[in-house]
Nucleic acid binder design. Structure first.
Ligand code: FES
Ligand code: FES
Lengths: 151, 151
DNA sequence: CCTTCCCGTAACTTTTCTTGTTGCGTATTT
DNA sequence: AAATACGCAACAAGAAAAGTTACGGGAAGG
């Protein structure tokens, strides 16, 4: 089963946008993600609708952050992407007649619900600023000093 | 992204096998799961290799439980199915050069690892016998008395 | 024996979902 | 007016899972 990498990709993009400061076009971003501008617009649409980024049309247009990274959590982005299913495993039938299957579904659903709650709670506690700081740390450790934040 | 329902299906089958006691052919099981005998064999192969079920060839052959439900946990079956990925979300690139992406991956991996550990721990605590008991409870609540276990 | 039943496995087809692509409309800047 | 970008719809391509077909054993029964 294949992974949905949209969350990972959007986080990546947003942090780059913050660090670069400038306007990013869908094409630039697509180049960064090795994908297509239309795919970028499609994915970013959710973030725009939720007010995390703004898009501007026309010459000189592109994407900009609408809020500081400090105010955006991983959970926010997850939600903005439409709350996609977190799990790769699930029931064969959501409303089975078979009572055995119902018992199986109930047990799995319980466990999955609990794990999802924990995961999303954690997502809610991590801001993109946290990730940006971790990037700075890695950047420093890699030899050269960070671009910004050299407080 | 589509769900992998193999775990759910296998649990379903195993409990039915226990409750019915008789040998079940791949064709019977396939009928139960609305699928194909070859798919059943394919999926059950893992369980057989791990010693949870036995298969017998030839006339009168089929599948039988190799161990009592009490000794099989959800985690056992999950593992027997090859430890499939639990999550539908994941990184775009496992070994990215970009340090931002590395930071993103690290954060996500941490959270996912934790959630997976919790989920699998829970899977490890639930036996198929627990599910069978829940089935009995539901069966009782549905009107008629349970087939067995009316202790 | 030899027929029937049943699993084991490989190869192939179908289905389904995601992603990628093209095309055109519209807004904005120069 | 020309150039640049997003918005969106429609379609194509790709990949992964499931389903199917086919054939090769092995075991039981007559
Ligand atoms: S499938 Fe027939 S009862 Fe569970
Ligand atoms: S994509 Fe993150 S550095 Fe180029």
């Amino acid at each position: 089963m294949r992974n949905d990498s949209r969350l990972s990709r959007m986080l990546h993009v947003l942090i780059h946008m913050d660090r670069q400061g400038e306007r990013a076009t869908s094409e630039t971003i697509a180049g960064m993600l090795n994908t297509n501008p239309v795919v970028v617009r499609r994915t970013m649409a959710g973030l725009r609708d939720q007010g995390y980024v703004r898009s501007e049309k026309g010459h000189g247009g592109g994407w900009t952050l609408a809020r500081p990274l400090e105010e955006i959590t991983l959970l926010d982005i997850h939600r903005a992407l439409g709350n996609p299913s977190v799990f790769a495993i699930g029931p064969a039938d959501d409303q089975p007649d078979c009572l055995v299957e119902q018992a199986v579904n109930a047990a799995l659903a319980d466990a999955l619900r609990e794990a999802e709650a924990m995961l999303l709670a954690r997502f809610g506690q991590v801001t993109l600023a946290d990730l940006a700081r971790d990037f700075d740390r890695r950047f420093g450790a890699s030899g050269r000093p960070p671009l910004q934040d050299e407080g």
